[in-house]
Design a protein around this nucleic acid. Structure first.
Lengths: 247, 247
DNA sequence: CGTGTGTTTGAGGCACGTCAAGTGTCGTGG
DNA sequence: CCACGACACTTGACGTGCCTCAAACACACG
């Protein structure tokens, strides 16, 4: 019991989200939570259901999706250890705005409405921290809206990859591995395009040496190349490649 | 001085944002604020500047915009009385995520970081209320992302109009007037398209009797028609129109 | 009464979606 | 351990929704 507590506490602390909370806040918080486990492909909750629990991921990865009017799925974002979701559960009558599905074996901490409400009112720092996280999310979403409104598909895919690299990138010798199972369709659903277009763009980048892909895996070999595409800059000469056909 | 206080207090209370706060919270809050006035077309703050004040609009309308990479503007949303913005000002080092420009004569209340921080920690209800507003904004933005990802231009324009009707719609005899100056370009910047396409769509709807437009003004004559387009439903027969060519 | 800002309309092109086939790869059960 | 089936991915051909550019019009304001 004790060791499990410590385990969860340190996991919570390791995540970026709760680093600023004091020990007592954290202990108070985690005491009121219940831990849940989910198998790969299991859904944590569904869009539209009444929101019961506010969740913080301890381990694993979760895909948050919404359903488009004609049935296609739109990926809101991926969650990893330390990420929170379902903030609406704090308010009575709220419904989950998205569906959450584990894409790996996943563990999470859940708080029901009353405890989390008590927590927020008892530890203002907790609420302020949550506000900060929400503000960041608002900013991210506004960025995404801007991108979808003004940028071409290739730029958006590049941005999605860069974002994923920051979030779940793991350095490997070849470059940066995106450490989650990621299909072309996932990428399409993140950027508002189709899996066909994503496929074409990725093979193009593959021949340019920018990425290396295998089934459900992406390795970014030249991050800067992606950034250039995202920012619509002239292509920086990749190391060891000959150029000379611009005219 | 007293009457001015009362004036602002009641204005604050009238807005949907602060209705849940108690009297002392509200009084405490408004005491720490400073009032500002802005002429039409004056900018309250610019994207990227260091965020100095958290703002609540008392009267008038404000356009929140972001700049796309190649200079075109994307409209995040419009603010009316009771709406808040620049929540980032609460956190040290934050920068405004958008540019705010008054599109009418506007008055607003502003709080600097220290007072608002004190307020949040002193009145947890204030923070919880702010969280709720932020959660709603997150939901709205996710909806917009979904729309931009999956829907055609006409649907998105219809949705934008429906949304505006809810927010700033004023019943007039002809239908519902959108009570703010709104150009085709504004609508384009709200929906990720061009003013040309918006113009074409609107003239089509005008001949169908769904809207009536004048320069910078839009009146929605058949709200249900717009909703049908937004939801991609079969066109409901408008009152007094003949049909019979479906096969 | 002009000048600017908002708006309409047309012609043309392209980026991307759509549909159709096909290849490779993983996991599973015999 | 192999064979099958499902899933992930590729590639081509084709269509089209919307952007782009150019021109002219109309209303509002000084």
């Amino acid at each position: 019991m004790e060791s499990m507590s410590d385990d969860r506490l340190s996991l919570l602390r390791r995540g970026p989200r709760f680093a600023e909370l004091g020990d007592d806040e954290l202990a108070g918080a985690h005491e009121l939570a219940t831990e849940r486990s989910f198998a790969c492909r299991e859904t944590l909750f569904r869009e539209g259901e009444e929101a019961e629990e506010f969740l913080v991921v301890l381990a694993g990865r979760v895909k948050l999706t919404q359903l488009g009017s004609d049935g296609q799925e739109v990926i809101a974002r991926f969650l990893g250890p330390g990420d929170m979701c379902a903030a609406v559960a704090i308010f009575p009558g709220g419904t989950y705005p998205a569906t959450a599905e584990a894409v790996e074996e996943t563990r999470a901490l859940g708080w029901r409405r009353e405890p989390i409400d008590a927590l927020l009112r008892r530890y203002p720092a907790f609420a302020v921290r949550a506000m900060r996280v929400l503000s960041e999310r608002v900013r991210e979403l506004q960025d995404r809206v801007r991108e979808l409104s003004t940028e071409r598909v290739a730029q958006r895919i590049a941005r999605a990859l860069v974002r994923l690299a920051r979030q779940v990138g793991r350095p490997v010798e070849e470059g940066v591995l995106l450490d989650l199972p990621l299909t072309r369709e996932d990428l399409a659903n993140m950027t508002g395009t189709t899996l066909y277009t994503v496929s074409r763009v990725l093979t193009e980048w593959e021949t340019a040496g920018i990425v290396r892909t295998r089934r459900r895996r992406v390795v970014i070999r030249r991050p800067h190349g992606l950034v250039s595409i995202a920012e619509d800059l002239p292509d920086p000469a990749p190391p060891g490649q000959r150029e000379g056909s611009t005219t």
